[in-house]
Simulated assay, not measured.
Amino acid sequence: MTKPFKRILFTGAAGGLGRRLRPHLGQFADVVRLADLVPIADAQPHEEIVQCDLADRDAVMAMCEGVDAILHFGGVSTEVEFAPIMQANILGMANLYEAVHKRGIRRVIFASSNHTMGMYKTTDVVDAAMPPRADGYYGLSKVFGESLSRYYWDRFGIETVCIRIGYCFPEASNHRQLATWLSLDDMVELLRRSLLTPRVGHTITFGISDNDGKWWDDRHARFLAYRPKDSSRQFTDAVLASGVDKSDDMNDITLKFQGGVFLTHGPKYKP
């Protein structure tokens, strides 16, 4: 069977989500090049392994050679101090897109984050046309990535789908996770639609399953024809029975803002 691409690059392949996605990527390309800062073991016949520091411009240029499309999931994925985020998520993103431009790669799928919008309230419904309101350095780095990819679309015609990924773990265990949950199967389907839709330009979409009480309106990415098949409804009874998030105190910043516990990291929130 002919596959859509000859070779795709998947950065962040050794990360938590990267390890879960890895077995599903062979459907998209004859060769899947796996990259990460740390070593990756057990290459399959259709896989290539590259160890790369995203802050190393020359290494990134070499990593991107011969690639048709990129799934960029690499970088720091939690709220930590600024320096490592700057190296991996900001300088690393600039290095990646310069390599994309010079190598003639035409499409990138960028793992952005819901934390680009984390300072919106949990009573708000957010769409991609609304201004970003990051909840920390990590979210700010993803805002930078979205803006940088927009620049490369406007200047050079490089297409990017930025996926603001929700809570992509096997189960939801609190109310925030019920609202933002994304199943692995739905994540793979969203990658498929992002890679194979003929024209995407620069698109921001929200990575979420068919949950009740969603905070995110994906109207601006409907043309991707992403149809989630899963829902967090399967976890609702267990969450309610657990009594978690029982408080309705909206002075609790983890309940008041969409960023949740990320607001307890880094500089103290001041209303």
Rank of each mutant, 00 (worst) to 15 (best):
60 V>K: 05
126 V>D: 10
103 R>W: 11
2 T>G: 04
66 G>K: 06
200 V>G: 05
120 Y>F: 12
22 R>G: 03
53 D>E: 09
56 D>A: 01
193 R>P: 02
24 H>F: 11
266 G>N: 11
144 F>V: 11
177 Q>M: 14
26 G>N: 13
266 G>V: 09
51 Q>R: 12
180 T>S: 13
76 V>S: 03
258 Q>N: 08
25 L>W: 05
247 S>C: 06
124 D>V: 06
249 D>S: 05
14 A>T: 00
110 F>W: 12
80 V>Y: 13
126 V>R: 08
264 T>N: 13
206 F>R: 04
265 H>S: 15
37 L>W: 13
82 F>D: 13
254 T>M: 05
233 R>V: 09
21 L>C: 12
236 T>I: 13
107 R>I: 06
80 V>E: 11
47 E>W: 01
116 T>Q: 12
146 E>K: 02
268 K>L: 10
78 T>H: 15
83 A>Q: 15
231 S>Y: 07
88 A>T: 00
118 G>E: 05
168 C>H: 06
256 K>Y: 14
248 D>K: 15
56 D>F: 12
270 K>V: 14
153 W>D: 00
82 F>A: 14
208 I>Q: 10
168 C>A: 13
104 G>W: 11
135 D>F: 01
54 L>W: 05
39 P>I: 05
201 G>E: 03
66 G>S: 05
83 A>F: 15
50 V>N: 00
60 V>S: 02
160 T>W: 04
207 G>E: 06
268 K>W: 02
30 D>R: 09
53 D>F: 06
138 Y>P: 07
252 D>V: 11
48 E>F: 03
56 D>M: 05
49 I>H: 01
13 A>C: 00
101 H>D: 14
228 P>D: 01
240 L>H: 14
